[in-house]
Amino acid sequence: MADSAVNNKPASGERVARDLVQLIREIVPLLENVRHSIEESTSHIPKASKQLSNVTQATESATVEILNVLESMTNRITQAEEKLAVVKRSVEKTNNAVRKLQAAVAALPEAQRKPFEEAVADVNAQLGDPGRDEGFRLAEEFLAKTKEESMSIAISLQVQDITSQQIAGVAHIIEGVREQLASALFRFENGTAAADIEEPNHFKDKVFDTNAQYSKSPERQSDADEIVRQFTNGKQ
């Protein structure tokens, strides 16, 4: 029994060695696959980063174009409001003049007043027309509402700044992964790939808040207001 065990030792050792060699034979192509995958992933990351940068630039350009249109709209609305105010003042002045004229006509002797009576009745009908004042009111309301809504659109475009910070945050994470992969690749290739590690970082100059969020919930502002109150002893 003991002899048999001793005799089995070299045979077992040889088998282990054979298994090890076999394992290494199988691992080498696997490692080669891993190296190839890392190399490929690493080479794709700058492209992904560049695409994110393009997205940020494109949305910023589009946002600025929208803001230009909104500004132009707002300016036209302001001009229309000013013109409307001029027309209203002019109508009011005309009304006052007509009222003075009516008083003057009313003061005339009846015989002289007669030819003016029809005209005076027409003017009275015009002065008392509720549709005209309602028209002014509706026009003012329409212009003010349109101005307010164009401002709301402009305010909502803050989302561009906030999402660009979120994208920069993602790009920063991707860049970190790329650096780690490049470093792994560098070790795989015995340091020969050192020159390939440097890639342009399209978000290098972007400073961002990783927690930036587009939320209209008042909670964050309320919390900030509470702290401001504590610092200013309620003076603000």
Partner: peptide, 10 residues
């Protein structure tokens, strides 16, 4: 951010 400057200025 150019966008934010424009929005605040407006």
């Amino acid at each position: 951010s150019l966008t934010m400057r424009r929005i605040v200025v407006n």
